[in-house]
């Protein structure tokens, strides 16, 4: 493939939206009230919309007849490049919110920066994405504050969730070889440059939510190299079920 690095770069971004959307999709109909149920479904819908734009573009670049669905549903686990954070389960609402917030802050930074890409298509996707992800961040940030400064129980639960996910955040700023090449060409974003601002923003909201900023020097990574947690196989089992069971059919 001529543009293998661009293809890899797009998938690196798209897979995060796909897998997080899939996790949020599991929650539809099971939220703590109707309003949050609707809001979380909205976020999932935005993420799937972005996913489709990225994969359609990737399919065009691949140029070998593969479709967005082939790319989304017919790869092996080692070929998915999403970060470990987004594949973590919906253990309870606190986990859903903490995972979302820790991703949204990064995601908005990425969308903002991607608007200045040399690649017109990525710019177009990012322009739409900025509006959507700003809303996601507001939603998850507001809930973080509600849970942090709500009751003793909610504070304990959301703090536990933040502590639990904290080691997964460092991976967001890892650069694969394709990421580096794309950043050099002005197409991709230099993620390392986003890191300080990320932790600054997160810390501000945690403080406002009367929560403690974790002091954990250890990190968990691997997703960007396709080495996932044990959860990933089950996510793909559902995601790929129809395409694997009934190959080569139109739905």
């Amino acid at each position: 493939m001529k543009d293998q690095d661009l293809y890899n770069y797009i998938l690196g971004i798209a897979d995060n939206s796909l897998i997080l959307g899939q996790r949020l999709g599991e929650l539809c109909g099971h939220g703590p009230n109707l309003e949050t149920d609707i809001a979380l479904t909205n976020i999932a819908l935005d993420l799937f919309g972005q996913t489709r734009s990225y994969y359609q573009y990737a399919a065009k670049i691949a140029g070998d007849g593969r479709t967005e669905d082939d790319i989304a549903m017919l790869r092996n686990e080692r070929d998915y490049k999403n970060v470990l954070l987004v594949e973590q389960p919906n253990t309870h609402f606190g986990h859903v919110i903490a995972r979302q917030f820790l991703f949204d802050v990064y995601h908005l930074q990425l969308m903002n920066a991607l608007q200045h890409s040399e690649d017109e298509m990525l710019v177009a996707i990012a322009r739409k994405g900025v509006k959507e992800v700003s809303y996601h961040k507001r939603f998850s940030g507001d809930w973080l504050k509600r849970l942090g400064d709500g009751t003793d129980e909610s504070k304990q639960k959301i703090q536990e969730a933040i502590d639990h996910f904290w080691p997964y955040t460092d991976e967001l700023f890892d650069m694969s070889d394709s990421d580096k090449k794309m950043a050099e060409q002005g197409i991709g974003v230099d993620l390392t440059a986003l890191k300080d601002e990320y932790y600054k923003q997160i810390s501000e909201v945690l403080e406002e939510a009367t929560l403690t900023i974790p002091d954990n020097p250890y990190s968990k990574r691997g997703g960007k190299q396709g080495i996932h947690t044990e959860h990933m196989g089950y996510i793909l089992t559902e995601l790929q079920y129809m395409q694997r069971t009934y190959p080569n059919m139109t739905w």
Binding site: P32, N33, T36, F93, K145, R146, L147, D149, G150, T151, E153, S154, K157
Partner: peptide, 9 residues
């Protein structure tokens, strides 16, 4: 617990 937290907040 989520609804209670929202009320308390």
């Amino acid at each position: 617990w989520v609804r209670e937290a929202a009320m308390a907040y």
